[in-house]
Nucleic acid binder design. Structure first.
Lengths: 192, 192, 192, 192
DNA sequence: TATGAATGAGTGTTCATTCAT
DNA sequence: CATGAATGAACACTCATTCAT
């Protein structure tokens, strides 16, 4: 059944988001998914491949959402704001995705996928920035650097070590979303 | 001899910066330091404690440098720019510190120290921001959020996945340092 | 269908001759035979039983051929020479049978069958030798020992480690067949 | 201690000779040697390397003995006879060496060493044969083929499946040694 | 009869930690 | 103080066998 494959991926994702790669042993994934360890190897050639897929799937989904949120607007500024807000809102909803982005995966191959994921996130913002710069909505700047900074910024603010404190301090999620959005928009040079 | 203790910490730091926590086994640290594995346990109760100290020492040193760089200026804008530039320049000089900040440490306790380190970095920027806001150099904003974003921003731009590409693309380190500084200053609301 | 049974045995035989017992897993046999793994267990109670049959069938066929080759002659010397030649020629034609005879089977039970096979090969030669000794074609000797030595001799020359070199060196298969035949005939005491 | 290394090799050798490679798991070797499994990896990079050494050491020792036995004589016939006798006597003394020569080791690398061993045994006999042929003690023949056959012959007679029966049947070890020696000498063309 | 998904015990290997010297 | 040999629990992965469909 292809249902088991999904169960395995989901179990792996859950374990990573809760306890990091460190606690996501094959046996634990199997237990979480309610299957035997051997079954995991029917669907994935190795633990590495499983976690590469976990990351890929998670990132793909987020990328789609980001681009979708941006596509609902025409102004680059609104696109940027919407993409950031979409990302932040989702991240605040649960720890599922968060951990994977700051984690140093045990395996270099998984790490490569994580790196690719961050790069792809950056590309979403870079595209928006480039269009905005061309339309004079943003000042001239190195869009790649700004995009990387934006990714780093909300990653840190959301899933980084400061996040728990920020969440407590700021008056509810809406407030935090708004703060992050403003910082990132300013970083892009958009005059608020 | 307390000299051995230093040699061990230095060896551990070297190994982490070169190959990450993954390749920094106790035996490897001992070999790098030129001591026996047993000796490490005379100075540190566990591998975890050793790496907590490695991080603490490294972060302490950076904090001092950051604050020192900022103290050379009076304008908040200049302080912020100097602190960022100091951090970025040092990070570009070598991988020594960089890796430790995005790495997911093997051990939760080490992770806790890493988190504390990032928070302390954030505090440096928060203090500068708060002073600047009070003096109307920066617009009203949540200084904690902005500070976290700044830490995330240059961490990503420096040691994140995009870094290698950025380094190749931008015309030399000086160019990259400048780009990052500008983004962060804009993020703080400083009109360039 | 009994056709499936044959297909399974044939597939197992092919895999063993190509890659040894090591690569002849049940799943691989099933794939090679174009059936499911489960079907194998409908015909054989265990993997062991399957490979015991593989060996038995292969050896039976060879024994028949050996005896047939010998039966075409009346002189013991010619019988011995013909039997050896028949075996050697067949072995040189393909690796099919060869591997199974020096291989240490995974399973003691399969090993027992292999041992039985070699013994039965020895008996073919022992019978020829005994008849030859009685007719004074061969000198008095321990026919069992000589027979075992003959089996060992051509097994080594054919499938042992020296085989590849011998095949390259000697001028074609015909030459090697002749050399082995001569050595074995001399071993039996037949004056060439 | 280098004593442990020897204990490990000896334990591995014992297990192989008693139960074959199949029963010589790392844990079993450790138990037999009275050490922990981890200690084995202090001396050997892998299970494979351990068993390669076990074979190499065993074969080296036998080769020295074979050549030594032959060196005590001047006639090629006597040399050949002495070498065979030496090998056979030792083999009859215990199962230690025996199993390793017919076993198909689990690992290709170990198998390669086994193959090399048999080849080196063959070379001992080939050298003796070549000298004897030159001195007209033996008739013209393919010395490589004869050497391979001799190795195969006594391997089969000694450690092959027929061995147990031969041992029971023949009147004591001395008798069997003599029979094998005679067969091999005849195979070389030496007129007894 | 036939399938092949599912099982889970077993194996080689790593590495933080200890302790006799 | 200092050594480094020794430990052993833990982990990824394999594969013969079973059984619901």
């Amino acid at each position: 059944m292809t249902r088991n494959r999904e169960r395995i991926v989901q179990a792996a994702r859950t374990l990573v988001s809760v306890g990091g790669f460190r606690e996501a042993q094959v046996a634990a994934v199997a237990a979480e998914a309610g299957v035997s360890t051997g079954l995991i190897y029917r669907y994935f050639p190795s633990k590495t491949e499983l976690f590469v897929e976990v990351l890929t799937v998670a990132i793909d989904a987020e990328i789609v959402i980001l681009r979708g949120a941006a596509a609902a607007h025409t102004d680059a500024r609104d696109q940027l704001g919407a993409a950031i807000e979409a990302f932040v809102r989702r991240a605040l909803a649960g720890p599922a995705l968060a951990y994977a982005f700051i984690a140093e995966p045990v395996d270099p191959e998984v790490d490569a996928e994580r790196i690719r994921g961050r790069r792809r996130f950056g590309e979403v913002f870079r595209d928006i920035l480039l269009a905005g710069i061309e339309r004079k909505e943003f000042p001239a700047q190195d869009a790649d650097v700004t995009a990387a900074c934006i990714v780093g910024a909300f990653t840190e603010a959301l899933v980084g070590p400061v996040a728990p404190i920020l969440r407590e301090k700021t008056a509810g999620p809406a407030q935090l979303v708004e703060s992050i959005r403003e910082v990132c928009l300013r970083a892009a040079g958009s005059v608020g």
